[in-house]
């Protein structure tokens, strides 16, 4: 094969794979938006109505319980996980750790990242059983936070490492302490740190396995942190398996909520990151 045929062939392959992936994505998002959007338009109340007592059987009421469950489980988890993740990432920088230490910790984080979420679910379940507690919202939060933590930490660590050393040097040179310098370095790395937080949030809000054993598959409104609760992904699974056609159609509505939430998050992170990128060293040039 001559060089030019080779080049043409590869160009074709590259375009074809991009087109394939794009088509699949458009279909997934399209179908969800279309079928979910239809429910949303005809019966928008399902999202803000509490489920009836036999919701899974007759579709009476709506699925507000899962929307709230998702919010109350994932938002606090994200807050806790981001604080832990940013602190860890700061600790991994050369100001605090030797290269060896940070290598070892990073290896653990990679393992954690690769661990299937169901394992976290089972782990937290063990704690629940040992403590003689019941599945509840708060344990869902714990499990999701554990799941998000390595993702966010790796992002934050990469972002801090990529921040120019000169920022650190300038800050120390002005007589800043190690902590003050860490703070300004985080600011310099903010676009990447935020990307990690949003990524963790999106993964957390979409995960079912962690929540399954920890918060449960409740079909009632959660009353407090120690009540059983559920999240949208679990709800979708239950809805889609229902015998009732109306409940099955609600699965699309719930998916619609999830996809819109994730899209909104991605957009928000783009906007936020763009705002902070202006401030990052070399900002507008990069």
């Amino acid at each position: 094969m001559d060089r030019y045929t080779e080049q043409r062939l590869f160009g074709l392959l590259a375009r074809a794979s991009a087109a394939l992936i794009l088509a699949v994505l458009v279909m997934v998002v399209g179908v969800t938006l279309w079928r979910g959007g239809r429910v949303f338009i005809t019966d928008p109340a399902v999202m803000v109505t509490a489920p009836g007592s036999r919701y899974m059987l007759d579709g009476g009421g709506g699925f507000l319980h899962a929307v709230l469950g998702s919010i109350f489980i994932v938002v606090p988890a994200t807050v806790v996980a981001s604080i832990l993740a940013i602190s860890t990432a700061i600790f991994l920088q050369s100001d605090y750790s030797s290269e060896r230490t940070s290598d070892v910790i990073n290896m653990f984080l990679n393992v954690l990242w690769g661990t299937p979420p169901i394992v976290y679910g089972v782990f937290v379940l063990t704690i629940i059983i040992a403590a003689g507690a019941q599945t509840s919202l708060i344990f869902g939060t714990v499990a999701i936070a554990i799941f998000q933590y390595p993702i966010m930490t790796r992002y934050a660590d990469e972002a801090l490492r990529a921040a120019p050393d000169t920022v650190k040097e300038a800050s120390y040179g002005l007589g800043a302490t190690r902590f003050e310098t860490a703070r300004i370095t985080v600011r310099a790395a903010l676009p990447g740190v935020i990307a990690g937080i949003i990524m963790g949030f999106a993964r957390g809000i979409g995960d079912a396995a962690t929540v399954l054993f920890t918060a449960g598959r409740s079909t009632q409104m959660p009353g407090g942190p120690f009540d059983p609760a559920t999240t949208l992904p679990i709800l979708i699974f239950e809805q889609a398996a229902s015998f009732n056609a109306e409940v099955r159609s609600h699965a699309y509505a719930a998916s619609f909520v999830l996809i819109v939430a994730v899209l909104a998050l991605v957009l928000a992170s783009k906007l936020l990151a763009g705002r902070f990128a202006r401030f990052a060293p070399g900002g507008r040039h990069s």
Partner: peptide, 29 residues
């Protein structure tokens, strides 16, 4: 140590703005 570095200031080779406004770059230290 920070007090020593305050008394002996340092301007790095690569011009680097802190990730702050122009105003706060000057006010930072």
């Amino acid at each position: 140590l920070p007090e020593i570095r305050r008394r002996v200031g340092y301007v790095p080779q690569t011009p680097t703005a802190l990730p702050l406004s122009i105003y706060n770059n000057v006010a930072y230290g």
